[in-house]
């Protein structure tokens, strides 16, 4: 029993859009981070579904790398958010406006 690849793509696109929506509407840096994770995972779904569809493992292996890099990104991001909180007492991304946007 297998599900057609189109449904996976639809799922991933939905996930991607949710992530994008979150990025555009949320002001909390952590929420932003989570939304980015959603988008990355949408890509992972795609990669794995297509790996299955094409019958090679490339996509799956790449998905592993993506996960690793997403984690590293979060690690760096959390560090930055931490110093952000120390400097601005907030994690709202619209608060820091020392420079003009």
């Amino acid at each position: 029993m297998s599900v057609a690849v189109e449904y996976y793509v639809l799922l991933s696109m939905a996930l991607f859009s949710i992530g994008l929506f979150g990025i555009l509407t949320r002001r909390n840096a952590l929420m932003f981070l989570m939304s980015v994770e959603l988008m990355l995972n949408a890509a992972n779904i795609n990669l794995i579904a297509f790996a299955f569809y094409h019958g090679n493992l490339t996509g799956q292996v790449f998905a592993l790398f993506t996960m690793a890099l997403a984690a590293a990104e979060v690690a760096v991001g959390l560090g930055i958010i931490l110093v952000l909180y120390r400097n601005f007492r907030d994690v709202d991304v619209t608060v820091p406006t020392t420079m003009r946007w």
């Binding site: 981070l33 988008m39 990669l47 952000l84 601005f88």
Partner: peptide
């Protein structure tokens, strides 16, 4: 504060664009 703010904004947009980039890769792969 400037440095931190700069880092934050660089990171936010960087993370967003890398997510988009990976998604693009996944579509090309598809």
């Amino acid at each position: 504060r400037g440095s931190v703010e700069a880092g934050l904004k660089y990171f936010l947009i960087g993370a967003l664009s890398s997510a988009i980039f990976v998604y693009g890769i996944s579509l090309v792969y598809g």
